[in-house]
């Protein structure tokens, strides 16, 4: 049996006296796509943010490639492996290319390599036509594609996407679903929280439903 890329064991998060996450058990395999469904307020975003180290879990254990941490601790080095994309991504006040290059710069990648990777990410996300548009003036779908490219360019071992098609028009939604299907096909480990039926029903994806703070596998 192959070793899991990432595991969450007994993750608990209390908010306002309520156990939003009540012993989450999750095992993510390398190159596998996962979809996490659940009602609004069920804790999907909270779970993703804990897995990305952006929010502290109250209890539980996380394992990443054999390394282990006891929540609420989250090793800084893991932030380079797991990347979270916000439901309403924030784009920095720089160019589209500058946004995509941000994480590469933060990692100290050589400039020539940065340029090459950013070019590839721009082509991958179909952003060539909006390179000269200030990021704040992009449509919701375009912003989401920039955010996806900005995350994918880092070649994360685990990509955590929060409602990537929420509030998008049909065309924006269609293009995001296409990119997600390509991510799956490219063997990127992706965990997506969403309600979108088209994403939930993408072939080869494993599905979970978050209910009463626990993850229930779906057929």
């Amino acid at each position: 049996m192959s070793q899991a890329l990432f595991e969450a064991v007994g993750v608990v998060r209390r908010l306002g006296g309520r156990r939003v996450l009540d012993g989450i058990e999750l095992s993510v395999e390398r190159g596998q796509g996962y979809v996490l469904s659940g009602d609004n307020g069920s804790g999907k975003t909270t779970l993703l943010r804990i897995l990305a180290g952006l929010e502290a879990g109250d209890a539980g254990v996380l394992r990443f490639q054999g390394e282990q941490t006891q929540l609420p601790r989250y090793p800084d080095a893991w932030r380079l492996r797991a990347v979270y994309v916000h439901q309403h991504p924030y784009l920095f006040h720089t160019s589209v290319a500058g946004n995509i290059a941000y994480g590469l710069k933060a990692r100290g990648e050589p400039q020539a390599l940065q340029r090459q990777k950013v070019e590839e990410a721009i082509a991958w996300a179909g952003l060539r036509g909006v390179l000269d548009v200030p990021p704040q003036k992009l449509s919701g779908g375009e912003k989401q594609r920039v955010a996806l490219a900005r995350a994918k360019v880092l070649a994360p071992q685990l990509l955590l996407l929060d409602e990537p098609t929420a509030n998008l028009d049909n065309d924006g939604r269609r293009r995001i679903v296409e990119l997600l299907a390509r991510l799956y096909a490219e063997g990127v480990s992706v965990l997506i929280a969403c309600h979108d039926r088209e994403i939930i029903e993408l072939p080869g994806v494993r599905r979970f439903h978050l209910e009463d703070g626990r993850l229930v596998p779906l057929a």
Partner: peptide
């Protein structure tokens, strides 16, 4: 948060 999430 975005900056931290991208590894800054």
């Amino acid at each position: 948060e975005t900056a931290r999430g991208l590894g800054a």
